[in-house]
Simulated scan of single mutants.
Amino acid sequence: MIQPGLKGVVATETKISHIDGEKGRLIYRGYDVKELTEHDSFEEVAYLLWFGVLPTAKELTKFNEELKSHRTLSSYLKTILDSLPREMDMMSVLRTVVSAEGSLHYTSKPTIQQCMKLTSMMPTMIAYRNHSLQGTPFVEPRQDLGHVENYLYMLHGVLPTKAQTNALETYMILTMEHGMNASTFSARVTASTESDLISAVTSAIGTMKGPLHGGAPSEVIHLLEEIGCTANTEQVLRRKLENREKLMGFGHRVYKTHDPRAVALKSTLLKQVGEDEWLDLALYVENTAVELLEEYKPGRSLYTNVEFYAAAIMKAIHMDPSLFTPTFTASRIVGWTAHILEQSQNNTIYRPESKYTGRIL
């Protein structure tokens, strides 16, 4: 029996994450992701996905020091970033520059140290290219800042507020890993040939670039901008539903109830009610939309997905839409590399069959 897109086909076993779509749970190495966003940093969750356990205080200090040591880009990578056409989109830039990072250091079996280096470098790649396009001086990474705080600092040249850092850190933890999605599968297929880590990550970036997978939450921003203020919410949403338009940011292919990532993001944003008009609007729109969706599509259980609140966060931290998917990539690289490591430890090359439907002469 053919399963288009391999939907429902179990192709491997993993200890990295588990998605329970019926109950709305996302588990990283046995831990509920919502609990991780409340108690742990980006670095601690990355350690968990790579090593399988949360770090001790001593282990975390050493881990942070090593991550920070890889933030600076080599001169040849900066030259490549400067040489690429201005019209090249950021995901294509990342695909090219990550590929160029490939060297003799990555020809051996994938290691956690390789994963750390690539994860640490990616925010710097994005920030460097963004400043180049804007015609502004590149902001060098700071060694006294955490991974997410430093990313925002490099992008904007000023220290972010604690609320901004917490919001983006929550988002980046929630999007680190999400099972055997298209880009993760792509990475594992490449790794299964015993190719190097750089090649596998490059495959994943190329897959993430596709709008059906890594499409940024730009459409959610368009919806919120069209609504503009709380007074317009019901009128705009009713018009869209009556015209059979899709409400962007609602519903998910996997989750049949609340998307746990959206729940965790909302929990973070509720701490900032009244501090940002855009976030307040998003919270109001969600409540109204869920009520109207139940009215127009009863029994469908359509709730907000992670993209809805991701859009609100990106807007609140003044991130340009061109950086949405690259930022998603800067978090998902942790999950990709964890899967690459797992694939290399118990490898079988992927080789599915296909059914020929052409002519036989």
Rank of each mutant, 00 (worst) to 15 (best):
Y255G: 04
R29H: 10
E245S: 12
K266L: 10
S120V: 00
L54D: 00
S218T: 15
H131D: 07
I360R: 13
Y128W: 14
V93Y: 04
E101D: 12
E275M: 15
S92W: 06
I221T: 12
G206E: 04
L174K: 02
N181W: 02
S41E: 02
V53N: 11
T96E: 07
H131W: 06
M208R: 06
V236F: 10
I16T: 03
E87Y: 06
P4E: 05
Y303I: 08
W336Y: 13
A163K: 03
S92M: 07
G146H: 13
S108V: 14
T233V: 12
M314H: 03
G215T: 13
L26D: 01
E194Y: 14
I16H: 00
T184Y: 01
Q343E: 15
L54E: 01
H156T: 07
S195Y: 04
L270M: 15
A262S: 10
S301C: 14
R25P: 01
A338F: 07
G214F: 00
H147K: 10
E38W: 06
I112E: 04
S17A: 13
Y309G: 02
E177M: 05
L155G: 00
A231F: 10
P137K: 05
Y303P: 00
N166C: 02
E22L: 11
Q134E: 14
A11W: 10
D82K: 11
S218N: 11
K23N: 12
E219W: 05
A262H: 01
S41R: 08
F185M: 04
T119R: 00
T348C: 13
A216G: 06
V273S: 09
E43I: 06
P298K: 12
A330C: 13
F308P: 01
E169M: 09
S199E: 10
S186I: 01
D196T: 05
T124Y: 06
T288Y: 05
T136D: 08
L145Q: 03
M121E: 09
K68Q: 15
I313S: 03
L341M: 12
D89A: 04
P217S: 09
S267N: 12
E226L: 09
I221N: 04
E149T: 11
D280I: 11
V285F: 03
G24F: 05
G335V: 04
L133E: 02
I221R: 03
T79V: 15
E277H: 13
Y171A: 13
S92F: 05
A163Q: 08
E22H: 06
N305H: 12
K23T: 13
R29L: 07
Y31D: 02
V148A: 07
M125A: 01
I333L: 09
E38D: 09
K68A: 15
L104S: 14
